[in-house]
Design a protein around this nucleic acid. Structure first.
Lengths: 333, 333
DNA sequence: ATTGGCACTCAACCATGCCAAGTGCCAATC
DNA sequence: GATTGGCACTTGGCATGGTTGAGTGCCAAT
């Protein structure tokens, strides 16, 4: 495709993102050194419109990039630019004294929101192959049992399950010790065999009760925490000016629901640092029609992303998302 | 105060909440059987305005309740009305099969948002006097230790702390056993004595290392989880029509920050089921100038609340908040 | 292929006039 | 003394209409 047309497309995108107003041939020349006249720009604009990359809101108005236009911009025009020194410093400071993984994610998502001025989201880190450190059973009420699973990676998962009433606390203490002997040190993904072995080692009448708990344990081990999302910067939606914030409502609904976002994440590449951009209709959701998502994988198959109006600063967004994803991935090693 | 004036105030509030437009004497008569003429209503309105309960946006406009007007309405006019049968059923169904406390809160806050069509918030339940069930130490990296505290109530708290490098995993296994012997079964609020006893029982050279961990444990036991808030229905802010949603931004900021909300909760009565209403300037926050909060205590000193425009349906809000706070309190027994 | 010029289009803006809804006040009435 | 009907007055909102400026498409000239 004609490099000048790409250059003009880039200029249009840039101006439109900055001014939020349809950009015409004249004003384009005022801001960019294109080396050609307004008439030439008009001709090229005409062609870009034929190709569906830009669009005219009404006859005598300037041009606005279409989703396809943004896509072409992202794919063929945008170049990643390195973060500024203060930005890199902010990231480093952030990572230095984060204690908890939870704490680390909370800070990351807030930083990402602040740097990009968009809504930021971070998926909980996927559990790598991890061994079980300890299993704890807590009788919370007569027929309620809390099962706690502690992994060597430092993750703690818990679940409350209903159990048959009437068993003494000592019963669960014993069961806990037996379960620990059976599964401690095992991979979370390979619990089936040791658990059945353990059950079969019991006298038949004791099996159903132990099975109740060991099933819960297996389910807990299979839980995918990456089904949760941490979010920050929702207020930035409002900042994004009218047309995008027009119907904030469905947008906030989507953010609260998280379902759409999770589907989105599962559709994305998982390789750490690989940035992926989804624009407007590519998001396949009515409420996200005017939105765009810039996402990247991090750690072992988890994702983080920013969400903003399709009219967003893709260059800055992509650069920041990529940088943060890489830093976090390295840190999680 | 003249009962008819209160009645008129009530009618104004009701109409304004319903129509979102300043209400005049004539239109008031169309909707309410007041038994007097428009002129009389006008005279009373004049008096209500003198008292600062209602306000005229401009000379030839209808009247709008002031914060003080809402306050008087809430204190002297509004009557709690029992929830409808479907609403009560929804609450009961909700509580029946909630496993986790976390899960219970998540459902509660969502239900509250849905029933009232406002933003709903629930503070994490305060820890009653609770005994320690188990302490687990997990060496996550060479100089990082995860401390997990499991209470008999079923609560699980965790924290990662930096420790001196170079200690083998077995060291922490031994330390864990000793700590468990020292604190298991103790009240979380009374850990100081057993921990110092334990430290003093050690040979002097071993003390500093053990102190590192036992300090973290004490800090963890002192953590107040009620410093976290669960939220739902942020999208309802947008639904609340323009004037309130006008500057959604500072509002969303407040919601995300949570600090203002926590301060608010600490200022509120703690007795379960006691509803408290804060209107506009009473919230003492610039961003919440046009907002109102209906809150109630639940459980042991925790709170839940809804937040909406000061022009909200207080009767429904108060009734729902009170009902849910009571149900939850009873359930948590 | 590019450019300057020109006629045309159209949203945004402003001034104007009108209308509906609302008020305050006053004299009459219960 | 409280209530009421009537009336003159106020004012934001809306519809109307003219003007302006930014922008386009097209065409002939370079």
């Amino acid at each position: 495709m004609d490099p000048r047309k790409l250059q003009i497309l880039g200029a249009i995108v840039e101006d439109y993102v900055a001014t939020r107003e349809p950009v015409g041939s004249k004003s384009l020349l005022e801001r960019h050194e294109l080396g050609v006249s307004a008439a030439t720009v008009r001709n090229d604009m005409s062609l870009l419109e034929e190709e569906g990359l830009i669009h005219q809101p009404h006859t005598s108005a300037g041009r606005v990039p279409t989703d396809k236009g943004y896509r072409t911009f992202v794919d063929h025009v945008a170049r990643i630019k390195p973060l500024s020194a203060p930005e890199r410093r902010a990231i480093r400071v952030l990572l230095e004294d984060a204690g908890d993984v939870e704490e680390l994610l909370a800070r990351t998502v807030r930083l990402l929101a602040q740097l990009t001025q968009q809504v930021a989201m971070v998926q909980y880190p996927a559990r790598r192959q991890a061994r079980i450190r300890h299993v704890e059973l807590v009788k919370v009420a007569d027929s309620l049992l809390l099962v706690v699973l502690i992994l060597e990676s430092g993750r703690v998962d818990q679940r409350t399950i209903p159990v048959a009433a009437g068993r003494p606390a000592e019963y669960y203490a014993g069961l806990r010790d037996q379960l620990n002997r059976a599964v401690a040190g095992r991979e979370v993904t390979a619990l089936a065999a040791p658990l059945t072995d353990y059950l079969e080692s019991l006298p038949v009448p004791e099996r159903p009760a132990a099975a109740e708990v060991s099933e819960a344990l297996a389910a807990l081990a299979a839980t995918r925490a990456e089904d949760r999302i941490m979010m920050a910067g929702t207020a930035n939606i409002a900042r994004s000016s009218e047309d995008f914030a027009r119907d904030v409502e469905p947008l906030l609904d989507v953010l609260e629901e998280q379902l759409v976002l999770l589907r989105l994440f599962t559709e994305m590449h998982a390789s750490p640092g690989a940035v992926e951009v989804r624009i407007g209709s590519e998001l396949r959701d009515r409420a996200l029609h005017q939105a765009a998502v810039v996402g990247a994988g991090y750690g072992a198959g988890s994702h983080l992303a920013i969400l903003g109006p399709s009219r967003m600063d893709y260059v800055a967004g992509i650069s920041t998302v990529q940088a943060i994803a890489r830093y976090i991935s390295r840190y999680l090693e």
